[in-house]
Write a protein that binds this DNA or RNA. Sequence first.
DNA 1: ACCTGAACACCGTTCAAGT
DNA 2: ACCTGAACACCGTTCAAGT
Lengths: 235, 235
Amino acid sequence: MEHENDITAPLSRRERPAKTPLTREGIIDVAVTILENEGLGKVTMRRIAADLDTGAASLYVYVRNTEDLHARILDALLGRAAPLPRAGSWRERLVALLTGYGTVLFEHPEIARMTMTTHPVGPHYFRLVESILEALSEGGVPDPVAAWAVDVLLASVTASAAEHSGPSTTGEGSEALAVLAARIAITSGETYPHIVRLGDEMLSGTGMERFTWGLDVLINGILNTPRTPSASASS
Amino acid sequence: MEHENDITAPLSRRERPAKTPLTREGIIDVAVTILENEGLGKVTMRRIAADLDTGAASLYVYVRNTEDLHARILDALLGRAAPLPRAGSWRERLVALLTGYGTVLFEHPEIARMTMTTHPVGPHYFRLVESILEALSEGGVPDPVAAWAVDVLLASVTASAAEHSGPSTTGEGSEALAVLAARIAITSGETYPHIVRLGDEMLSGTGMERFTWGLDVLINGILNTPRTPSASASS
DNA sequence: ACCTGAACACCGTTCAAGT
DNA sequence: ACCTGAACACCGTTCAAGT
């Protein structure tokens, strides 16, 4: 029984298997684990290095800098997502595609926030874009419109997920708005009549209901908004 | 002449006018100045304090923490923006309102990024919301739709501005996409046929053209998407 | 009440030196 | 080529002590 369960004894090679040789994949893996357990704030070079039993400097062989690291995490998360839908009408498929993407980002709001600025790259993201274009094309959306629509759709989903971020617990954002609305109502019922009147309505609905409605707005808008080559000159 | 121009002598009350008494307004002012000259990255407690000839700890009397500080900066920026439009049709006014808001955020993409998560508060933001609701109401948009639409519109503008952020120079984002598209074309012309075919189209247009089109999509969508009270139960 | 210096617990990144 | 320790130049926040 010597020190078989002796926690204080230094870890032998047997117990900690040879200290994995440090690959980019391994680094990203550790990063994703930390992200899922402790949030993006803890995903630092130093912390990842510590989990890998090395110094932060060692990571710079595999990732250029922190931004690069984050972009790669995003790619990895997309890879872990559900497979893309193949059944249903083009519109059902489109909604499913965007909802699936949204689900990943809603589960990792900090990543969503990041995605606002760091463009995703990698095969999984491109397959998603490809599928969206395919659905739009099947829906009879003209190529020029579809080309711009992908961006609008994906950005909207990302923004939606990013909004539900923040360091606080679930309903904090809405609560802040509610408190605020109340304060406004007290301060000046006359200055902001519309806000006072629609205050409750503005806070109504679940996240999912609003998300779905937003998608409908976008798709309906896309179906009703031609892209004039550049019609800003004439009246 | 004693030490009238003696740089090494400690600054007297006359030369540095009494060291402004440290108000919240003064703090935010310095923060905005640093933001405009050196970017959000330099807007740190320590740096602001240094510009104010004090220690970082002193700021905590006036701002709760860094997030609070940032939210107040945003409010200040909104206050510096152009006055809200009062002329034109409801739709023209709506577009003008959103374009004006967008302009502020496009000039400060880092703030836009921040706005994705930190909800703006303050009189200027509310006046904007109020005006949007007013325009939508005049446009015959039903109250429940208008209430949700404000959010979608503002979030979309914010997201649009945030996208053009990033630490790099102007066209970096698109360039990355282009490089990427090229890589895809080489790697697998067969796996992503739609992307390859629409690659150029996806990168076409100026930021303003895309922004305006996006607004049209949204408004058209809003005009064509009713809000069923909660119709997800029935088929 | 407001202000301050010093301390605590962190960061990213670089570099010379090792293997 | 890969890895490392140490160093550089920073952070936010707290706290006891001053005024």
